[in-house]
């Protein structure tokens, strides 16, 4: 049986360690539960601290490599062996160098912007389907957020553990009357009040979940109204059971 010192040594090394022995100890130790909650709050700040501004590339910045200002004159370019290679490499660098100047100037993206940006990486998640994620697979994903779903939860057709602002969070897609709806369980991201957004072709809400961060719920396109999305968010929130 693991004791508190062993538990804390492991959790300090990896606050998201999936080791079941950690879970067993946590369920029976109030002190370590409080310790873990404090550590996870610190971990959330740490993830945000490491996430310094860096420009998201659009790929459309066509700036000649030789016209990159101070950054280009900082030191001589590396010797290149072939002109063809140079041309291709230069085009790859266009966005890189142009973006560099914007690194510091870019505002830190909002939570909603980060959620929307995350959507671009998983377009396959938005399929309309009647096939549910197997319960065991869903349970594994939800474990990242110390939660499970019961009762009136909409059918979950997609479930992945995704890296978001440095931490693994459940990324779900539920099937509803208005089509697929994405739900991200952001246990480390607190919002003081519900926030609606309509960005980059996605419409959604981020709602606070007292003591457990927030839920981001969003749809693709502009067909669904914000109130309907809020209802889905409320339905999902009501179906969540927090296990820690």
């Amino acid at each position: 049986m693991m004791d508190c010192a062993q538990y804390r040594r492991l959790i300090l090394a990896n606050p998201h360690d999936p080791n079941p022995e950690l879970r067993i100890h946590l369920e029976s130790c109030r002190d370590c539960t409080e310790y873990t909650e404090r550590l996870l709050r610190f971990e959330s700040r740490l993830a945000r601290a490491l996430h310094v501004s860096a420009p998201a590339e659009s790929g459309a910045r066509a700036v000649p490599l030789g016209a990159t200002g101070a950054n280009a004159t900082r030191r001589a370019p590396a010797p290149l062996v072939r002109r063809g290679w140079l041309a291709m490499a230069a085009s790859v660098l266009i966005a890189l160098v142009a973006g560099g100047a914007l690194w510091l100037a870019s505002p830190h993206p909002s939570l909603a912007a980060d959620v929307v940006a995350h959507m671009a990486g998983e377009p396959q998640a938005w399929q309309r389907t009647e096939v549910a994620v197997p319960p065991a697979e869903l349970a594994l994903v939800l474990r990242d957020a110390h939660m499970r779903l019961i009762g009136d939860a909409p059918m979950v057709s997609y479930a992945r553990s995704c890296l978001f602002r440095g931490l693994k969070v459940p990324h779900l897609v539920v099937q509803t009357d208005m089509g697929p709806v994405t739900v991200m369980v952001l246990v480390h991201e607190s919002v003081s009040k519900p926030v609606s957004f309509d960005e980059e072709g996605y419409r959604g809400v981020i709602v606070p979940v007292p003591g457990h961060g927030s839920l981001a719920v969003l749809v693709r396109g502009q067909q669904a109204g914000i109130n309907a999305i809020r209802e889905i968010a409320a339905r999902v929130q009501a179906a969540i059971v927090w296990t820690a």
Binding site: V52, P55, E57, G59, W103
Partner: peptide, 21 residues
Amino acid sequence: RDRFQSLCQRLRPDLLRFAFW
């Protein structure tokens, strides 16, 4: 070239952050 450029663009912010830290 397009595939590689797309890959670079996708990874670049995190690579910059890693290099910075």
